[in-house]
Amino acid sequence: MKLKTNSYIVIIVLFLLGAVMPLVLRRYNLFMLTEIIIFALYAVSYNLLLGYAGLLSFGHAMFFGLGAFVAAVSIIHIPGLTLLSAVIISLVITTITGFLIGGLLLRHKGAYFALLTMAFNALFYAVATKWHSVTGGDDGLSISRPEMDLGFASLSVSSVSSFYYLILIVVGASIVFCWYFTHTAMGKTVLLMRENEERMKFLGYNTNISRLILFTFTGAIAGLAGAFYTLHFQFVSISAISIDMTTAVLLMVFVGGTRTFWGPILGAFVYIIFQNYLSDITDRWPLFMGLIFVFMVLYVPGGLSQTIVSIRQWFSGRTGTQDNGPAKAEET
């Protein structure tokens, strides 16, 4: 119980801290922070698959990109569409797609699962590239951000700070929702399934259905992040649905650490900041990102979050019992 209260305090403090950021940060940094929050949601959704369920997917970008493209296409083709309706359309379509693809994949695990997700991603990428009349092909799609319609008033979110607040509230709430999800019975089932699927089956759980629900859920969340990505940059191109986008989220999650819920958020933070500053300094920034990735996987498999947890344990003098699952590592 105490654990949960503490978590709530941290969440509230983070939101408050986020709320004062526009007063402290310059426009450029605020723009970057908005991007970080969006990618944090994407990374969290990926970690629900990788860290919690132990499913390595190489195709998460298909949901992210699909969400991004659906948002752009619907804004372009449906006149007068409000911002939230565009997001909801994306969410619905990615959920359905997640369900259909999940249905085809749910019997596969390990390498087969990874390769099949990669194949699906390649399929989506090919469609996005070739279907020029809808997706713009190599040219991509430019949109202008629609207004928010709150029912009683419409709100302009064209400025950097007002859009930031929207993202902080909506995407922030989605991240909290994901965190809450891990504490529900369904979330726990996923964890147990990773640990010992045979036993779960003997206990009478249909693990295939649990996996399908999880896959659909994470797909929908990634699609949501994708839709906000489009709204943020007001532009989407085939990069959003390419394998690069999957690699990006893999990097974020590995750098941040898969063993905690907040690891991927930290990873997104580090990744975006690195990407922005490294690409200012050198054109070879993917090389450095790659080196960091290799280093992390070889020497710090638990990621940054693991390092922080270890340091904290070292300071508080506790013997470092290694956590073996996100469920136990939510002490923050």
Partner: peptide, 8 residues
């Protein structure tokens, strides 16, 4: 890549 150019 158009997204890279516009972002920078």
């Amino acid at each position: 890549k158009p997204d890279v150019a516009t972002r920078k």
